[in-house]
Nucleic acid binder design. Structure first.
Length: 157
DNA sequence: GCCAACGTTGGC
DNA sequence: GCCAACGTTGGC
């Protein structure tokens, strides 16, 4: 099965790529996805070895900052059962969890972040969901072409 | 801080 | 099942 390519959003002051770099095995669980469309991507399509662009949203600057891979496929997001968590969902039942998570491991930080502004200026990326207004999914698929183009942008002027 | 976009909720 | 109200996201 062919690898898939994804973009994961995180706010830099909540969990940045540097936080990920400092994590054990440079690996983290991806908690807090509370959108059904995003959940379905996690449940149905994300496979070990899939490649992930790590993007800082609500940050300065907003940018793709790293490359990760999926190292554990969908399993229940335990924060949905934790009343102390911001992500607590009292309607979710342990025997049928509503929300799932994957684990990702940092492959490397990009040499230079690729700013949203630069992505918008690149006509080859005009179809990428990142530049489309109103896209609020925290995880979504990107094409291999877009993935490669963003990495290329980080390595060239 | 503002506001547009859009998903979710709840009254009917 | 419709749809208005509300809450959240995220760029600027």
């Amino acid at each position: 099965m062919a690898k898939k390519y994804w973009l994961f959003k995180s706010e830099a002051d909540v969990f940045s790529v540097d936080d990920l770099a400092k994590s054990e095995n440079q690996t983290t669980y991806w908690d807090g996805v509370r959108n059904y469309q995003a959940r379905n991507f996690i449940r149905d399509e994300m496979k070990n070895g899939d490649q992930v662009l790590y993007y800082h949203s609500n940050s300065d600057p907003n940018a793709v900052v790293g490359i990760c891979e999926i190292v554990r496929e969908a399993y229940p997001d335990f924060t949905q059962f934790d009343p102390a968590s911001d992500y607590f969902d009292p309607s979710s039942k342990a025997e049928n969890p509503a929300w799932l998570m994957v684990d990702i491991r940092l492959i490397r930080k990009l040499k230079r972040p690729v700013a949203l502004q630069k992505i918008k200026e690149n006509p080859e990326l005009a179809q990428n969901k990142l530049v489309m207004r109103g896209n609020r999914l925290s995880v979504f698929p990107v094409t291999k072409e877009d993935f490669d183009e963003i990495i290329r942008m980080s390595e060239t002027k």
